[in-house]
Design a protein around this nucleic acid. Structure first.
Lengths: 234, 234
DNA sequence: CGACGCATTGACAGGGCTCAATTTAAGTGG
DNA sequence: CCACTTAAATTGAGCCCTGTCAATGCGTCG
């Protein structure tokens, strides 16, 4: 992809560029370079010093933290228009998470120096980033509450609905989750094991709520899943 | 407390004021007003629109999210020099958490208008806030990993060590955690129940690792607790 | 076609939650 | 200062959810 191929009309409407004139936003984009990742490729490893930050143009990253004994917690999935590793660059910290492409993914990359310069040149950029950071914070706090307070089945229902809202597409058979996600990924996202995820999805399949193939999930009855997340008695 | 009573020397060394000249920092403080809370008093309720933000001068707040069915998850405790409700003010969002004073607490309060004006006047302030937000984010992400991957006893050990580092004071009998914290609070902090916390603290008391009175904990053998958080076999 | 990774399912055990009953400590008001 | 009230903490019994382990099935790709 060349820079001219930016889907400019979509990009300039991002929260990142809110209240920033188009020409300035274009300058911000110009300051970065383009990078492509293959499916499964690692963008950065947890513990490495963060000297770059990223904007996803297409594809998707999985941001996760690794636990000593092999376990992994998925913090979030990062799709079009979202940033990765922003704040760490400002703090010159080690970045405390790993990012891996779950499909072919294209990014804008800025190095630390240009990023800091951009922030100084465009104060509104810093304000927008605070806003985006707040959204991330709210999301992880909400999931922290859920994992503290709720049973596994409900958490899995929430996870599927959440992912569905981001990447689901209607088809005649139901809402297909385009993004490839394994049982293991779902388990790491909800703080359980792939055994439990498998059991619950099998159960839902028997009930006709979802249908699954190898790494794809189709939601047939979203309403039942929503009930599951709402009904206190379940 | 009057504004003149600010412990200026300590305040101006806060991360909030990093790379901001003293006179400007003083101006920022001047733009806010002082508020006092009694123990147990609620500063703001989850769901209310955030039109103020806060800096803790003394005392401590408990920031938590409430779950429909009565459960509560403690997101963090907010002590001297830390901010509350900052980002929500920028986004004009409802604030998604509640804050309650756990002891007599004094704060600086800014309303939204002055806060936004300050951010525009002092771009470095925005940068510092991004940095602070990043620290909060890292902390909650770490705890998200722990609650996903670790057993209850280890999480409780981590919680006590963490709180000890913030508010512990040495005495001849061990490290006393000054901050009053009930079993219930610890349970809400670690995503378990006060029954389990009580059982584990009793166990540690039998082992001579801690001693507890009603709402106070003294750590007698921090090393054993640290081992508990590190040893994979436990 | 074989090999590998992902997914499923059963059996089993145990950690931790729930419920219930006490005990202990801290206020409170006479 | 003591009885009384109330909230916090402790402890036991029981059980259920869910993690662990093991075996098998199934898709995909070289």
């Amino acid at each position: 992809m060349r820079k001219q191929d930016f889907p400019a009309d979509k990009l300039f409407r991002l929260e990142l560029f809110q209240d920033i004139p188009k020409d300035k936003a274009a300058g911000i984009l110009e300051a970065g370079s383009i990078k492509s990742l293959q499916k499964g490729e690692v963008l950065f490893h947890q513990g490495n010093v963060a000297n770059k930050c990223f904007l996803v143009l297409s594809g998707r990253l999985k941001l996760s933290k690794l636990h000593e004994e092999g376990r992994e917690a998925v913090l979030r999935y990062i799709g079009f228009g979202e940033l990765a590793a922003v704040a760490a660059v400002i703090k010159e910290n080690q970045y405390p998470a790993s990012a891996k492409a779950i499909c072919v993914t294209e990014l804008v990359v800025w190095n630390r120096e240009s990023w800091l310069r951009l922030l100084r040149q465009h104060p509104q950029l810093a304000v927008n980033i605070v806003g985006m950071a707040f959204d991330r914070m709210e999301e992880i706090q909400q999931r922290f509450l859920e994992i503290s307070a709720e049973q596994t089945e409900r958490r899995i229902a929430r996870a599927i609905l959440r992912i569905m809202q981001h990447t689901g597409t209607r088809s005649d058979k139901g809402i297909v989750i385009e993004m490839e996600i394994s049982r293991e990924d779902l388990a790491d996202f909800t703080g359980t094991t792939h055994y439990t995820v498998s059991r619950i999805l099998s159960d839902w399949t028997r009930k006709g709520w979802v249908s699954t193939t190898r790494r794809q999930i189709t939601v047939l009855d979203a309403h039942s899943l929503i009930l599951l997340t709402e009904d206190p008695s379940v």
